[in-house]
């Protein structure tokens, strides 16, 4: 079912490299299910006629864990699409950009948070040109301040450090 050889992507067949999307994906979900089950462990289950707070979370967590295991097993047997490396650089700079924005918005304000997060995030690609990016970041920030703060009156901190 998961073996779509017509897509032209790399596909592993049973017997060769078996680290496929489904094997890893199944394992990851199994672990997530187990984690949720652990978190829901102390919640009272109740009975069908009077469901407790733990009934649904526990059942869903168990289903996820079992489903993940089934997926991983069938993936081992049947093969499927090969895992490709995640784009770690993109992840690092994009996530970093959001976190930087979060760290600076309250303490320093949009004047700093805007350019800092944008310039940081720009480094996610090789194509970034420092001067162009900086000028662009400043322009967008000014635009955002005018739009969100003055035109729309949102209570977003603009200059928090003064």
């Amino acid at each position: 079912m998961t073996d779509d050889s017509s897509s032209g992507r790399e596909v592993s067949t049973a017997g060769r490299a078996r680290i496929t999307q489904d094997v890893i994906g199944g394992l990851v979900l199994s672990m997530a299910g187990a984690f949720f089950a652990w978190q829901a462990w102390d919640l009272p289950l109740g009975s069908p006629g009077a469901m407790g707070p733990g009934m649904l979370p526990m059942s869903v967590a168990v289903l996820i864990a079992i489903g993940g295991a089934v997926l991983a097993t069938t993936g081992l047997v049947a093969g499927g699409e090969v895992m490709t490396m995640p784009h770690l650089r993109g992840m690092f700079f994009i996530i970093g950009g959001i976190v930087l924005f979060g760290l600076t918005i309250r303490s320093l304000g949009l004047v700093v948070a805007g350019p800092v997060s944008m310039i940081f995030a720009s480094a996610a690609t090789d194509e970034m040109r420092p001067l162009e990016t900086s000028v662009f970041a400043v322009c967008i920030t000014v635009f955002c301040i005018l739009l969100f703060k003055y035109a729309l009156g949102l209570p977003i901190p603009v200059v928090a450090f003064m």
């Binding site: 918005i105 948070a113 944008m118 310039i119 970034m128 967008i140 955002c144 209570p155």
Partner: peptide, 29 residues
């Protein structure tokens, strides 16, 4: 290369403004 940082900052402002919450940004991340 210019679009995605601009989208990022717009989204951050959007998420932050919904509840004025920094934590929402971390959840987003």
């Amino acid at each position: 290369r210019l679009l995605f940082p601009a989208i990022l900052v717009f989204c951050c402002i959007g998420i932050y403004s919904i509840n004025n919450s920094v934590e929402d940004l971390y959840f987003t991340a």
